[in-house]
């Protein structure tokens, strides 16, 4: 393959990942605004935005290869985002459960209650006086 062909293929790949990334990021934020329930809203940004930014980082890696200074540094940010996104999502879920700003979940099938709603150690949880929020 001639160098021109390689450059053209890389350019097309950069364009595709830029467009995919931009569309998914936009859909993530649009879902955040559109959906009407606190738990439903959690679905759009945690996944679509993570994938969208992942595609933008892929475009950046390809761009570095197109400039003949190959580097894989962006893969580090990608891995970090994909590892931390579920943790943030679960923390926000726990806030929703704690503030009662969502549907009441069903009882667990084998244990007594869910960890967030467990008030047995209420002595060291000073947030107990908070009243349930109204949406």
């Amino acid at each position: 393959m001639t160098p021109e062909t390689v450059t053209l293929i890389l350019d097309i790949a950069i364009t595709i990942s830029l467009v995919v990334g931009a569309v998914f990021t936009l859909v993530g934020s649009f879902g955040l605004l559109k959906l009407d329930d606190a738990m439903k809203r959690l679905h759009a940004p945690t996944k679509a935005s993570t994938l969208g930014v992942g595609a933008l980082l892929l475009a950046s890696i390809l761009g570095a290869f197109a400039r003949d200074e190959p580097s894989l540094q962006e893969a580090l940010i990608m891995a970090f985002l994909f590892v931390t996104a579920p943790i943030s999502a679960q923390f926000i879920c726990k806030v929703n459960l704690h503030r009662r700003s969502c549907m009441t979940p069903p009882e667990p099938s084998s244990d007594s209650t869910w960890a967030t709603l467990d008030t047995a150690d209420a002595g060291d949880a000073p947030a107990q006086h908070l009243t349930p929020e109204k949406g």
Partner: peptide, 20 residues
Amino acid sequence: GPHTADRILALDTMTVNAIG
């Protein structure tokens, strides 16, 4: 808003978008 969790989620999304 209207809930606290929505505001936290919106801030988290804004950080991810800022990285992009």
